[in-house]
Write a protein that binds this DNA or RNA. Structure first.
Length: 281
DNA sequence: ATGACGAGCTGCGCTCGA
């Protein structure tokens, strides 16, 4: 089963590129972020023609997430429920469409668009940390229910300095601060594993390049789009790949898709039988 | 290299993103 995540920076502007990519890659599940459109205006037909079901949670201009799946998603939930964070009822918190989850093939698929946070002294930064704390509570609930989890999306956090092209310049700033990294760790705890880092421990792999200053051409990127899976699923994980090719398209999204392959019928024994092969996050 | 790019809006310049 091929599972992908992609911040497309407008579903309508990127539609033909997304359809082309689906035709090349044939994912079973594709989670999108930054669709930037209200549900009534989401272009569902091109995906339905290819045999996909859609679950969408969008808003005008900003944010917006969607799950596109060959198997019809069940138990679809939009946004948080039961978050105990202090400002959970504020208008801004409820208005931003950043999370959608569903059960597919026995796995709890959680698609997130984590707030960027702007800068460390911004009120948006406090919102980002608060949002991540709510996500942590949300995952606590899922863990209590014994769910197998695949948590993916645009996290707007580089988990370590390996995930930044110029750590000396950016360490400690937005997307690379200890506060954000600790908030992300508190979401993952020890229960969720970074799929990409199981296969690749070196720096130099990015999922986002700034539109400005020839970021992609100069390969000055960040790895901020992630697929985290329950420890119990790692025995079924065959690969995790960042597909940089769509970033080279004309009028691209600034993010590249990230995808994993899960072999739900078999176990990849040669690597995962040894507990020591699990990496610290 | 962050005013420097790109998207959306009811637009003809602004806000926002990362």
């Amino acid at each position: 089963m091929l599972i992908a995540t992609w911040n497309v920076n407008s579903i309508r502007t990127r539609l033909s590129q997304i359809i082309d990519w689906i035709n090349q890659v044939n994912p079973d599940i594709l989670c999108l972020q930054e669709t930037k459109v209200m549900d009534d205006n989401f272009p569902v037909e091109p995906f339905e023609k290819l045999g996909y079901s859609l679950e969408i949670y969008g808003q005008k201009s900003y944010n917006g997430v969607a799950i596109i799946s060959k198997i019809k998603p069940e138990n679809v939930k939009k946004g948080f429920n039961g978050c105990t964070e202090s400002n959970q009822n504020s208008e801004i918190f409820l208005d931003q469409k950043r999370l959608i989850s569903a059960d597919i093939n026995g796995i709890k698929i959680i698609n997130v668009y984590v707030p960027n946070g702007s800068s460390l002294d911004s009120s948006k930064f406090a919102y980002k940390i608060n949002w991540l704390n709510c996500l942590s509570s949300f995952l606590d609930e899922q863990e209590k229910k014994g769910e197998l989890i695949c948590l993916m999306g645009d996290f707007n956090v580089a988990p370590s300095n390996l995930d930044i092209h110029d750590p000396k310049k950016y360490e400690g700033g937005i997307m690379a601060s200890e506060i954000e990294r600790n908030a992300l760790k508190n979401v993952l705890k020890k229960r969720l594993i970074d799929s990409f880092r199981i296969f690749e421990q070196n720096t130099g792999h990015w999922s986002w390049w700034d539109y400005r200053n020839n970021g992609f051409e100069l390969n000055k990127g960040w790895r901020i789009d992630h697929i985290y899976i329950s420890k119990e699923l790692t025995s079924k994980l065959k690969s995790c790949v960042i597909d940089c090719s769509p970033r080279g398209n004309l009028r691209p999204s600034d993010h590249a898709p990230v995808m994993i392959e899960l072999n739900l019928n078999g176990i990849n024994e040669d690597f995962f039988e040894d507990e020591d092969n699990f990496f610290e996050i």
